[in-house]
Design a protein around this nucleic acid. Structure first.
Lengths: 301, 301
DNA sequence: TTTATTAGTGCGTATAATGCACGAATGCAG
DNA sequence: CTGCATTCGTGCATTATACGCACTAATAAA
């Protein structure tokens, strides 16, 4: 029984065919086929019913998979733990982050981080869905907003604050709103959120919250696209500060309502960093978490 | 990382030296030495401090060992479980069968079968369409009639013979037909079949085939419903023997033309049992196929 | 000091793995 | 209904790997 065959089997269960697994591993499909066949010989049981175009796992495969997968992960984890005891930061760190945040807040920091730890490879998995850290073998994940409960270790990187902004061109044409109620007369770029109405919340320095109904003809569920629209002068946008930093710094956008905190949902969104709660935290994970923590402490988002 | 290297490592931790492990495995000591060295390369950490006459496990080895050992045991156990599923009658058997056949010919046998194999769960998928065994993860399928070609293993359970019958009440009112041609004057219960005209075929003991045009006002594409109509005295019905057994035995129906073979299509219909593959045939599939085979051999349908 | 045993290393051979090409099967698009 | 493309499996030639043997260095016990 080959360990590689077991890993291939697990991936075949995930992908549902041999060819994709072969491509992912850079080997010939026949190799995968032979590995699985060898495994079946070892088990004395058929794992997949094959028709040329479809693989169907047998009951034996399902049983084997559900017990094998945790064991393989444990071996991998044990290997990492043993290695990290005597090794410096090395290997590959798999980071999962939302697309917009990765592009504007992580990628700019990568050169410095990579220079700090030349032995460490970085695998940035960009995805806006909530990935399963264990399933995808993610070491560290960035999550925005409020946090669903889980058995992961969570650390709050920074408070996430929002700002209303528009392009100078737009403000010249339509005027600069002075108080929150003024935005009712403006085009707003809408980010549809399930469970929330089309209101923006403004909290003044005294803590008073004002809710203003907004209107607009453009609605996009992608904050990077909303940013582009705002820069193009299509209206007011409510966006998180980490996404605006560049555009504000270069003057392509102009922030409004400096005296207010603004939000579309509530006022306690944050940037979270998550990692699996392992008894032995790999060095690479620790240094990455510490690095981001430092960065966001000294240069708050 | 080789699975065998991991197993060797565990044993080295137990024995405390390479030579004994090598002897226990019937390999050369140099082989063990090389396996451990490869493992150390994979981990990036030294596992043993070697002095020619003594091995001292490092801290990394201790950490690795304590997590590796349960994982290896789990893999071995998972392998045994998957294999046992093949060799022992356990798990769940998914059977696909046409509704009428399932109700009258399979369900009555289930109590006995279930008692024979108490560890086996049974999932009876009743469907009159031709399901894709792989797609639906079906272990065994029952098919009636003639068989479309496929890459499945097919076994003929029994010849399927048809009989013309009617209720005693109906025969009292309308008279008992003596020769095939007599049925032209009777109400017949029609089962519409694509590609076949409304004729019934009679083959006498001499092999002579007679085709008789039938007529009737009731047409139902459901043999169980036709059975009910016949029992209710609504006409003559041409039905497969396995569907009639009960009604004939209790006298609710009476068979006609004992000296003829009858059919609505051709004379070589059969009950087929199909399963996906012959290699690594799970025990649960084998016992079910054998059980039905025995049942239909001793008590022909 | 001698002896016996152990780990590590070259080296040649034997076994195993791999890729490629080909064939059969099958789902999909036109 | 018919090509078209993709997928899995197998035979074959090639390549890579693993293995044992012989030998060296080292060390604990006699």
């Amino acid at each position: 029984m080959q360990l590689e065959s077991l890993q291939l089997f697990v991936e075949v269960m995930r992908y549902g065919n041999f060819a994709d697994v072969a491509r992912a591993h850079g080997v010939a499909p026949s190799s995968v086929s032979r590995s699985i066949a060898a495994l079946e010989r070892d088990l004395g049981a058929r794992l997949f019913q094959r028709s040329t175009r479809r693989l169907t796992p047998t009951e034996a495969a399902a049983v084997f998979y559900h017990r094998l997968q945790p064991a393989l992960r444990e071996i991998e984890s044990a290997r990492a733990a043993a290695g990290d005891l005597q090794r410096e930061v090395s290997g590959t760190l798999r980071v999962s982050a939302p697309a917009a945040f990765a592009n504007s807040a992580i990628v700019p920091l990568l050169p410095e981080f990579a220079a700090l730890y030349p032995q460490l490879g970085l695998d940035l998995e960009i995805s806006d869905r909530f990935v399963d850290l264990l399933e995808e073998r993610i070491d560290v994940a960035i999550r925005l907003g409020s946090l669903p409960d889980s058995n992961l270790v969570a650390r709050r990187l920074a408070q996430m604050s929002f700002q209303v902004c528009a392009s100078p061109d737009y403000l010249r044409r339509r005027g600069v709103p002075q108080v929150p109620a003024d935005i009712a007369a403006h085009d707003c770029l809408l980010f549809p959120r399930v469970g929330y109405d089309l209101d923006w919340l403004f909290r003044d320095s005294g803590g008073e919250v004002e809710k203003v109904r907004i209107e607009g003809r453009i609605q996009i569920a992608n904050s990077a696209a909303i940013l582009s629209c705002a820069i193009a002068g299509m209206g007011l946008a409510l966006l998180p500060d980490w996404l605006l930093r560049d555009a504000l710094a270069t003057g392509r956008l102009q922030a409004l309502f400096a005296d207010y905190e603004v939000s579309a949902t509530d006022f306690d969104s944050a940037v979270w960093i998550l990692y699996p709660s392992r008894s032995y935290l790999p060095q690479k994970t620790r240094v990455f978490v510490d690095f981001l923590g430092e960065r966001y402490a000294t240069r708050p988002a």
